[in-house]
Design a protein around this nucleic acid. Structure first.
Ligand SMILES: [Mn+2]
Ligand SMILES: [Mn+2]
Ligand SMILES: [Mn+2]
Ligand SMILES: [Mn+2]
Lengths: 232, 232
DNA sequence: TAAATTTGTTAGAATAATCTAACATTATAC
DNA sequence: GTATAATGTTAGATTATTCTAACAAATTTA
């Protein structure tokens, strides 16, 4: 038989693939319990869907072992992430949304099956490589670049850095950053670091001075821009 | 109990509501068989979904009688049509798509639940009142204007008309119109009408001359612009 | 290592959306 | 006005997605 119909992944399956992809990138392995937690479903539900994804060749799964995406599954997931991030960027740069408003909309738009739509977005934006939160946009083949920024919590007093990405893009964190006028591209100079609680005092936008807790610093990914009194 | 959760219509239910709305606007009444045909499902499937929609208060249905949308159902449907038509207009005016490419994309985008998204489109376009095919865009309350254009097949030789809308927006028909350079807003002068087959010879764009079959004329909705040798 | 906790699985059930086959009602044609 | 055709309904089944309850395996703690 030649014309066996290959069924498209449903919206539900796509959300599972994306969750597996994102969890694997953060933590390496993916347990059923993490997956279930991420998607806010029960463990039996996640367990059952993983079996379904295995049948369609998107992941490999053995009882009591962590779930592993196949190359096919990885590519499927990366292309959904691509649509998600292109959408977020389009909403911010072409439609005037704030970076804290776009994730929920993109969570729905990413499931639209219309490559022309996303290609046109891409073209209109001049082929951006990162989304509004600094995360890389996979290419059309599903390849994703590893930007490996450092966390601000690793920076030392005297260093100058540029805020390049976030490891948490929750609305609450984005609103916190808005309230401090912290946007991607902001140059930060590390004034001092408190040994007791690892909080950092930074100087940015030529005038402001701000104390950032360790919790916040861990979520801010930076490029080291210039260094004073540094061992390098 | 105060906090009874009112379940949102699923994508499937939304497509049924829209089909009921569109069929009712074209033909007045809606039979199960028409509904089933429109949605490409079996009659038992349509029958069963109509019962579901009745339970949720969106339509009224009695065995063997035509289906009637309630005011609630009409409003729900009109708001989906609104999202569909705003999307089509956005794709054409802001993203450079052709009018023959947008329906399929809008068929998916219309199910996105994010009023901000559609309000922003609306705002960016300056609150358009019609879609790229000349169909009216319902307002935020779900009210829809009746533009009642005439069909070109009703026009008489000597009259000048403006192409204002289409009663068929299929890709095939739109591609036919593209090939003849017929766009909305085009002024057409009716040169003559063939009594035998009701075909019409028209003149437009200052130079072109074209014969349009009755089948085509019926699908072209026009505003009568000026009249020569007319009884009015 | 034994107990306790966490993690994972199976079984069984529910709801949504769909189908086919069989039967029933209504409308149309002769 | 009966026969035929069209339309509509019911029953019963299937697949997808989800749940809870009960049990099993693996890991952590003491
Ligand atoms: Mn996002
Ligand atoms: Mn999603
Ligand atoms: Mn359309
Ligand atoms: Mn649709």
């Amino acid at each position: 038989m030649i014309n066996q119909i290959v069924q498209m992944a449903s919206t539900t399956e796509e959300n599972y693939l994306k969750a597996l992809f994102n969890l694997a990138n953060e933590k390496g392995e993916v347990n059923i319990s993490e997956l279930a937690h991420q998607l806010e479903v029960s463990m039996p539900t996640a367990n059952s869907m993983v079996k379904t994804l295995q049948k369609s060749g998107s992941c490999i799964y053995e009882k009591y072992k962590p779930v592993v995406l196949t190359p096919k599954g990885k590519k499927e997931a990366a292309l959904i992430v691509r649509k998600h991030r292109l959408t977020e960027m389009f909403l911010v740069t072409k439609m005037g949304f704030g970076w804290e408003e776009v994730h929920e909309i993109a969570e729905q738009v990413e499931h639209i099956h219309a490559s022309k739509f996303f290609e046109r977005m891409d073209e209109m934006m001049g082929y951006p490589t990162v989304d509004p939160h600094g995360s890389p946009i996979p290419d059309k083949q599903g390849r994703i670049q590893d930007l490996q920024f450092k966390s601000l919590s690793e920076a030392k007093p005297g260093q100058e850095v540029i805020l390049a990405a976030l490891s948490d893009s929750s609305t609450e964190f984005l609103e916190y950053l808005n309230s401090r006028k912290l946007t991607l591209g902001t140059e930060l100079k590390i004034i001092s670091k408190e040994a007791f609680d690892q909080s950092i005092v930074v100087n940015y936008l030529d005038s402001e001075k701000e104390t950032l807790s360790q919790k916040v610093c861990e979520k801010l990914l930076v490029k080291i821009y210039e260094s004073k009194n540094s061992s390098q």
